[in-house]
């Protein structure tokens, strides 16, 4: 069962890599033309094609690209000629740090808020939380970010730009990255809270919860023993979906706070039309996204007795 899911996930990753690679085949002209521009002589074009291996058939180039990527070698940047793995290096760590930071704040907050809103359905708390979440969802990330800058950075509490380097201590990192992490948290919490609430409400309406109440069990026992085991799968999916959402949010937030991460790198590469870098970063983001969904899938399979204990 789980092996099948894993196999499917790996298959999906493979297809995703195919799509990302295949997209470049849609380029008008080819990569060499792209790099050298319209004024290039046929000789230089031919030489560059040779150098980049563009004369090989597409499957060969795909294989070279993918096998390179798997060993951490993404080729060289088209705009400055540096190895892409070098460009990615520290930035990957920074982005992962930011995402984890935001997740560590967002997951507990939104689960607690979502469960409370579901249990106190239609109360003032529920309505306020809902209206707040709806508003937060409606704000563009950069709007949230600048409001925080105006509010918290203007007063000098936190820095509005993140200047970190490999020698920055962990404590300083936490401090300096607070605003970007808070921005992401606000945006993601809203989504996650609404989904958690919906999942719990859906669950509390099931006949077996009524049965538990009719057995005379205490509300706490009903929630912990009867609702929670069944809520795990939907909650896991909600978390995975929103962590995946962080991947998108991180791009904008990194630009606002001039945070040296992958999102910043990707935006610059898109502006320069540096397809090699864009491909590499897209592969990393998409891979993380697929992996998160895969983990969620496996975890919710494990927590579902219908799937674990066949007839």
């Amino acid at each position: 069962m789980i092996a099948l899911r894993l196999a499917l996930g790996i298959g999906l990753l493979f297809i995703v890599s195919l799509i990302i690679f295949g997209a470049t085949e849609l380029l008008p002209g080819d990569l060499a033309q792209q790099i050298l521009g319209q004024g290039a002589t046929p000789e230089t074009l031919a030489a560059l094609r040779e150098q980049l291996g563009l004369n090989d058939p597409a499957p060969v180039r795909y294989w070279n690209w993918l096998s390179g990527a798997l060993t951490g070698d993404f080729g060289v940047s088209l705009s400055n000629g540096r190895p892409i793995s070098e460009l990615i290096g520290a930035r990957l760590g920074n982005t992962v740090f930011l995402a984890l930071y935001a997740a560590a704040l967002a997951v507990p907050i939104s689960l607690i808020l979502g469960i409370l809103a579901a249990l106190w359905r239609n109360s003032i708390f529920d309505r306020a939380a809902n209206a707040g979440a709806l508003t937060a969802i409606s704000f563009p990330e950069f709007f949230v970010a600048y409001i925080l800058v105006l509010w918290l950075a203007q007063t000098g509490l936190f820095p509005s730009m993140v200047r970190i380097n490999p020698t920055t201590t962990f404590g300083d990192r936490i401090y300096m990255t607070f605003l970007p992490a808070l921005t992401l948290t606000l945006v993601v919490t809203a989504h996650m809270m609404r989904m958690t609430r919906a999942a719990i409400i859906n669950l509390m309406a099931s006949p077996y919860i009524e049965m538990a109440r009719l057995k005379g069990l205490s509300p706490l026992r009903i929630v912990l023993r009867h609702a929670l085991p069944n809520a795990l799968a939907p909650i896991i999916n909600v978390i995975a979906l929103n962590l995946a959402y962080l991947i998108t949010g991180v791009v904008v937030v990194e630009v606002v706070f001039v945070y040296p991460g992958l999102g910043q790198l990707m935006v610059d590469a898109v502006s320069n039309r540096d397809i090699a870098v864009v491909q590499a970063v897209a592969l990393i983001f998409a891979g993380a996204y697929v992996a998160l969904n895969l983990i969620a899938d496996v975890l919710s399979t494990i927590t579902n007795p219908r799937l674990m204990h066949r007839r």
């Binding site: 006949p207 538990a212 109440r213 009719l214 069990l217 085991p229 069944n230």
Partner: peptide
């Protein structure tokens, strides 16, 4: 609560939905 389940019990129409699947 002390009465329910102990002195008064309930049998639902759909046992399949009323047993906790977990």
């Amino acid at each position: 609560r002390d009465l329910k389940g102990a002195r008064i019990a309930y049998v639902a129409q759909s046992a399949a939905a009323s047993f906790n699947p977990a």
